[in-house]
Design a binder for these strands. Sequence first.
DNA 1: AGTTAATATAAGGGCATCCTAACTGATGGA
DNA 2: TCCATCAGTTAGGATGCCCTTATATTAACT
Lengths: 228, 228
Amino acid sequence: MKELHKFAESEEMYLKTIAEISGHGNLVPVTSIAERLSISTVSASEMVHRLQDRGLLEHTPYKGVRLTDDGLNRAEGILRRHRLWECFLTEHLGLPWKQVHDFACQLEHVSEDALTDALDKHLGSPSFCPHGNPIPPAQGVLEIRETTPLSDLDVGQEGVVLCIREEDGEILDYLDARAVRPGRRVRIEEIAPYDGPRSVLMDGEKQVLGREVAEHILIELVHDDETE
Amino acid sequence: MKELHKFAESEEMYLKTIAEISGHGNLVPVTSIAERLSISTVSASEMVHRLQDRGLLEHTPYKGVRLTDDGLNRAEGILRRHRLWECFLTEHLGLPWKQVHDFACQLEHVSEDALTDALDKHLGSPSFCPHGNPIPPAQGVLEIRETTPLSDLDVGQEGVVLCIREEDGEILDYLDARAVRPGRRVRIEEIAPYDGPRSVLMDGEKQVLGREVAEHILIELVHDDETE
DNA sequence: AGTTAATATAAGGGCATCCTAACTGATGGA
DNA sequence: TCCATCAGTTAGGATGCCCTTATATTAACT
């Protein structure tokens, strides 16, 4: 009931997007920001300047963009809220993955600290969202896990699904329906020619996953001691 | 993660505000909308025209504004979401009234039907928000209760608190601290001169409430058969 | 080294929402 | 009945975020 304005919304989308694209500290080309947000490069460029003026990122022309500490903080705050809401929507409201992600995308811009913290407590301070992504702590740094895209595994290699990269609601819907979840054990059975679809064994169940999809499934490699 | 735009936010604030000011079907002067939203009358006037063009309300110059059926529907949807979130924030997150109200004011703009309905189910389809205001059903009409502001009661009259008018976070904070809640029984003990502060007995406990505050406490009169 | 492709900037707009200042028209009480 | 006051409109701007088109600059490959 207070201010009608919404400074933050757009800004937050940029910060979040940049944080998501840049794995950790990588330079993010302005073009890829524009692409992910479905806006023109001109607009993205403009906004990058604005964000730079506000000290949230640094832009190296022709190279890309990197979040400052401030910007990274903000971005992690957004990811934290997003993922906490995802936990809530999944566990308590029982919504399907796609809706969970879409709704969380809106809720993430709304939550002040007091709300976020109360939600966190209510959920029992979870460490991971339903898609397996780590939830940044209220303060402190997000620790980094070593992950490999499923698409990088060779025939015979095995691993455990750690998380799904969740930039895109469509893919979540698809994987939700196929019961691809964090914690499941996968083994590549076959890769079709031309880097094509993977036949995988997931907890004993056979599945076929296209390469594009496989890129979004992040794996912790399991050393297959007998074979190696 | 989809569209960056926010058509609805501002529009929704107007609709909600109009619905709140107009008890039921009363004409709402444009000035009072402007006042409540802390914007200039020019801006409010402008927006009223826009909303009229979209068929959400009708403006009678020099008289005021009335929501159309469409507009009322939209407004009730917003109130529904607001009050459902209030239930959640109170019962599950245990937040104090003021925060509950403020956060709900933001969350109300974010909830699509699927989310609202899931939330409703999760909460057990409550009929009233924590402040005692009725929650409009998903479809159908909100039934009207007969209420009297506490400020209208005379010395000796008794009633039960039905709800708190919740336009303003400050008042909620104040009443929260004084344990003024729906369901409590009140009796006016004394009214200070010049329509001043009321001394009331609330479930046996003595309280003093200013007239302004008393106007926001809505009462169901109890016929005191012995005295009357 | 030179051309091409990627990237950045400039120029000119659009839309929604807000503002102030100045003006006009309606209402209602003395 | 008339005038003060309240309500509404017009004009002229501002901001944030988006657009297209055109041009400049840099990077990268042959």
